[in-house]
């Protein structure tokens, strides 16, 4: 069970502002997910290697060869407040 306090905590970590209604709804939805995981935990998985990926592939690598980067104008195009060729943001230290 995920209570309101935990939802608010996770919300804060993701910088999400949640209304009271949303907190209630998330609490229910996240709890359902956790319940599902809890059910899976009841399976007997003795000897089964933990799976990090369901695709049976390993070592998908690329050669260390440069590819053109994007032009800066294009990079900054969606920035709300560009300055000096950079993304200007409220200082996280303030």
């Amino acid at each position: 069970m995920i209570d309101r306090k935990q939802v608010l905590h996770v919300g804060r970590l993701a910088r999400l502002e949640l209304t009271d209604d949303e907190v209630d709804r998330m609490s229910g939805e996240l709890s359902t997910i956790l319940d599902h995981v809890e059910r899976m935990n009841q399976l007997d998985l003795e000897g089964v290697e933990p799976t990090s990926h369901i695709v049976p592939l390993e070592n998908v690598l690329r050669a260390d060869e440069p590819r053109p980067s994007w032009p800066r104008e294009q990079v900054l195009e969606p920035a709300p407040d560009p300055a000096e060729g950079a993304f200007r943001v409220p200082s996280p230290q303030a």
Binding site: R62, D64, E65, P66, R67, S69, R72, G85, A86, F87
Partner: peptide, 21 residues
């Protein structure tokens, strides 16, 4: 020569945001 997960070139001291994708 390139970044960990993309082909942008590694650089130091270049103009900001000229090695991004």
């Amino acid at each position: 020569r390139t970044k960990m997960f993309c082909g942008c070139e590694l650089s130091f001291g270049d103009r900001p945001n000229t090695h991004t994708c």
